[in-house]
Design a binder for these strands. Structure first.
Lengths: 148, 148
DNA sequence: GCATCTGGTTTGATTGTCAAATTACAATTT
DNA sequence: AAATTGTAATTTGACAATCAAACCAGATGC
């Protein structure tokens, strides 16, 4: 079958995309006003998010890292002025994380970059076709979920 | 327009895919007979490839890392028995890299995993639809190329 | 043959990571 | 209410990955 061929091509393209995105995001970062952040730090900011003030444990789970790893990362982000620690009312053990003004600026810049990227992804497709692309992503997500 | 909505959903899904794949590949690795490899080492093996015996500089470029970083990585992979260094005939400076038998086994195992992943990605689509998905990836690759 | 260029290695510093030990607070048991 | 157990986070010690800069060794050019 010829679809085998297509799968191979798609695999190659996915890999190319995969390899480049992280690297490009890092390069983009170094050119921006947020030079002092690594790509991992940016993703930590992303995982904290704008609104919910998640606990340290929640963010660690989102990032698939241990609590200890996150503690260190947050310490650096606090020092650099992107993140604030807040002690939870009523349970003195819990530390909630929130972005500072600077952190929120960073978050939005990153989100804008992603938006541009996705816009390019679906350029030239009609609604129905965009729906197909979305379904393909859903397939992949289901597959990944079964693996977890 | 409603396509803005779709773009947002796609963005979220891309991010989810993105975060999970690396982590899952690492988990898959640790369950396999190649437990002694990290995900980065696996990608180094992938970048060396089965056939061409690329130079150290070529592999470093493919991985977007410096020559120094690669030297260290290769030293470990040689120690672990996955990679061989070969001095180029005629130019004593150049070091070409090749996979050992064990390295080739690893390469093929990784390729098989990717194949499963991509198969899930295009499950249930006809040839025309798979073509659309491929075009979307091409869009994204073009966008990434303009950013480079 | 000396100077320069080029591919690779080494080194020192920093970041990211984990597991294990520790601290601090909360909830449960007795 | 004191002791036990449980839970959230931090600290610590070790090790991968990474870079920039210094260095080394083989090529190339004058």
């Amino acid at each position: 079958m010829t679809s085998q061929e297509a799968e191979k091509r798609i695999n190659g393209k996915l890999e190319a995309v995969y390899k480049d995105i992280l690297w490009l995001e890092e390069a983009e970062l170094k050119k921006s006003r947020f030079k002092d952040l690594s790509i991992k730090e940016m993703h930590t900011i992303d995982a904290i998010g704008l609104h919910a003030e998640p606990s340290s444990a929640t963010v660690a789970r989102r990032l698939h890292v241990t609590a200890g790893t996150l503690t260190v990362a947050v310490k650096n982000l606090v020092r650099k002025g992107y993140v604030e620690r807040r002690h939870e009312q009523g349970d003195g053990r819990v530390v909630n994380l929130a972005l500072t003004r600077k952190g929120r600026l960073m978050y939005r810049a990153h989100a804008a970059y992603h938006q541009k990227m996705v816009a390019s992804f679906v350029t030239g497709f009609n609604d129905h076709e965009v729906g197909l692309i979305e379904s393909a992503l859903d397939n992949l997500l289901s597959f990944l979920a079964t693996q977890r």
